[in-house]
């Protein structure tokens, strides 16, 4: 059975699995080949990782950002048809964009069938949706899955586990930004050592980008339409225009989780996150620490820790 690797929250794992294939949010690593100057380290790691994946892996990348769009082109030079580029519209307020996303999922379905998947039989999509919904809901409520799930970035699940394990109280922080890579888990320890704790994971592929809960009666009526509602109408991402959905979501989540500060972890050369930092400072309502890190810096330098300590220290001094 083919494994379908993906790394964007608007690629519904349910849709892949309903076609009888295995979905997996890819956790990328650099190949060790030199960094491409100007390329987002995450996008490059995805390209490096998938380029080295075996024949059993096929990949779905998206047009959500230009870096990944062009990354897909680079990848296709080697993998050819094993790469599928899903058009995820940036605009979300017009019915036409929604319809376009629907058509794109149908096109993805045909591609999956071409790679050995089968058209979902009656009830199959509904079943996968119900299963994922249950598991996601448990995760939302603090239950850590035993196995890395197919429906989000597994690093986000490990982060949740680590954060729970390491929680010794302290200043409540949220983290926001692009998708986490394996070595980013060090952030839990640093925050903890500096006297803080993570109460909100708003990185891409984590809690923020989980789809809305499915409505069972809507699933029964039209499962695909319900899938699209839960994803397209609700997942707030950095590429959407206008970008208000993301800011509204964050402001709510910060209140709900009582985060006192927000750590923006963004990859160097990621314009989308970079430009939004200024707005985040206006909308989040809490102190923001902006970490512009190249991949090589993400493994853990004293510089990062020192900045974290300074932030937590100053938050501690603020009246609560």
């Amino acid at each position: 059975m083919k494994t379908v690797a993906y790394c964007h929250p608007l690629v519904p794992s349910e849709w892949i699995e309903a076609h009888g294939l295995r979905a997996r949010w890819t956790v990328p690593r650099h190949s060790g080949a030199g960094a491409i100057c100007g390329m987002c380290p995450y996008a490059q790691a995805v390209v490096d990782t998938l380029a080295g994946a075996g024949e059993e892996t096929i990949a779905v990348l998206t047009t959500a950002c230009d870096q990944m769009r062009h990354g897909a082109g680079l990848l296709a030079e080697g993998l050819g048809d094993r790469v599928f580029l899903l058009n995820v519209p940036s605009t979300w307020q017009s019915p036409a964009s929604r319809a376009y996303y629907t058509e794109e999922l149908q096109r993805l379905g045909r591609w999956l069938v071409g790679w050995g998947g089968r058209r979902p039989a009656a009830g199959q999509l509904a079943q996968v949706m119900a299963d994922h919904d249950r598991a996601r809901n448990a995760f939302r409520h603090g239950q850590i899955p035993d196995e890395p799930p197919s429906w989000c970035n597994p690093v986000a699940v490990r982060l949740a586990a680590e954060a729970k394990r390491a929680d010794r109280g302290g200043v409540a922080l949220g983290i926001v930004g692009g998708p986490l890579m394996e070595h980013d888990l060090a952030i839990v320890e640093w925050i903890n050592a500096a006297g803080g704790r993570i109460v909100l994971d708003a990185t891409c592929g984590g809690y923020r980008t989980l789809p809305e809960r499915f409505d069972p009666s809507a699933i029964e009526r039209d499962a695909l339409a319900e899938l699209i509602r839960a994803y397209f109408d609700h997942v707030p991402t950095i590429h959407q225009r206008p970008g208000s959905r993301l800011h509204d979501w964050l402001a709510n989540a910060i209140r709900e989780h009582r985060a006192e500060g927000l750590l923006c972890l963004r990859y160097v050369w990621c314009d989308l996150w970079h430009a939004e930092v200024a707005r985040l400072k206006e909308t989040a309502g809490v102190t923001i620490l902006d970490m512009d890190l190249g991949d090589e810096d993400r493994g853990g330098e004293g510089r990062v820790v020192a900045r974290l300590e300074a932030m937590i220290e100053s938050l501690r001094k603020q009246p609560r």
């Binding site: 950002c65 230009d66 225009r241 314009d271």
Partner: peptide, 11 residues
Amino acid sequence: VGATCDDMSAI
């Protein structure tokens, strides 16, 4: 927007 550069979309 859509298939445009991130620079313009972000700015």
